[in-house]
Design a protein around this nucleic acid. Structure first.
Lengths: 222, 222
DNA sequence: GGCGGTGTCATCCGATCGGTTGACCCGCGG
DNA sequence: CCGCGGGTCAACCGATCGGATGACACCGCC
């Protein structure tokens, strides 16, 4: 953990990491800016309050790392923003996700979208600094709880809802009955019940109310 | 609104406002500290990562204002912490709630608990600084969206669930059937159905799944 | 070319839920 | 003192849900 010059993250002569901060909460964003400004070896290139703004600024500023919140209020969300950032042609920035939640669904989607790291806001600031430097070099960086979930997921592969099952679940969360779910999705009521049964099994519940609760809890729905 | 020395937040000679920051997310907390340190007329007296810690530090540091997040992870929540802080004998600090959500339930509970102000993290940092100074003098400070909700609430008084109805709702969110809800709460099944009917009416739904969805959405449950 | 996962559909039955109506008790406040 | 909101309970009925089982077609993969 300590280099030849000690733990100093900025050996003299190396250019600071230029980062773009993306978070829809202005106060949090300002706080991060103030925090990162005081960190050695890190230079804040810009700030964005939405995914659209982040995409535009990434082109203009060409930052080394984008610090990305997954929840961005209105507009495109953090996952989609990450996907577009990392799939951009040419020198795409590394995306370091910094968010509140560590649910399997969020982690999986973020990593699939091309995120280099996944940190929790509950993490210590030092971890954040370290992760930023890691991300700048393309090295993966995961919070301890996140890493734990990933490994647990590998050990006992989560079933994971299929697309169709998510459709059913979305209707379920609106309090709609089986008959109308069937009509809405152009399938028979029997099929709805089959999907429900599998959803119950996968979520470990046996009622629709329970399924909705678990879905909301695990953030399986928008 | 303007004092004899003008609206300047820090007239020379006036002591800075001493504040205690309480937020369970270390990164956000560090960000706030960095941000507030750069603000004129504000001095960070300390930081707390939990409600318990905040209570202890408030006694020791006697801050003018406590900046309080409502979601504190494990342990007592922000509302309860606020209640204990403001009900403390002697020079109780003013509590300024700084949170992400602006649901009616959160706002109402925070104000009932004695909060002096209610700000959203989406607010501009300048608003935060102004609100801190306002809170230091005991003047109420509300974010614009929050103020809007409060006034809307006064115009069309929300029904609001009773304590008992919340009990039922909590069981409902576990996916439990009426019979077992009745057993858990030591009442008859008929009573459960009566409460459910009223809950449906108040939430504007007509199924249990819908009720759970609305409850999770409006954050009516822990 | 079989095998598993997914999506589709059907039937049957008991258990549960939603809707309605009516009732009693208690505490609070006009 | 009486109304009102909150909490409790009862009985009834139709609609819906949950549970079990079986079936078929499509697709990707080994």
């Amino acid at each position: 953990m300590t280099g030849p010059l000690g733990g100093a993250p900025t050996p003299p002569g190396r250019a600071p990491v230029r980062i773009l901060v993306c978070d829809d909460h202005a106060v949090v964003r300002a706080g991060l800016l103030a925090l990162l400004d005081s960190a050695p070896g890190i230079e804040v290139a810009g700030e964005a309050g939405s995914g659209e703004e982040a995409l535009a600024l990434a082109v203009k500023l060409a930052p080394d790392v984008v610090l990305m919140d997954l929840q961005l209020g209105a507009g495109i969300d953090g996952v989609e923003t990450t996907r577009r950032l990392t799939s951009a042609p040419g020198g795409a920035p590394h995306v370091l996700v910094l968010t509140t939640y560590d649910t399997d669904a969020d982690i999986t989607r973020a990593i699939e979208a091309g995120a280099t790291g996944y940190l929790l806001k509950a993490e210590r600031p030092e971890e954040l600094f370290a992760a930023i430097h890691a991300a700048a070099e393309g090295r993966p960086a995961l919070s301890a709880p996140v890493a734990g979930r990933v490994m647990a997921g590998l050990r006992s592969p989560r079933p994971g809802l299929t697309d169709r099952e998510r459709d059913i679940l979305a209707q379920l969360a609106l309090g709609i009955g089986n008959r109308d779910i069937a009509r809405a999705l152009f399938i028979s009521e029997a099929t709805v019940k089959t999907h429900l049964r599998r959803i119950y099994d996968k979520l470990g519940v046996d009622t629709r109310a329970g399924a909705v609760a678990v879905a909301k809890e695990r953030r399986l729905l928008p």
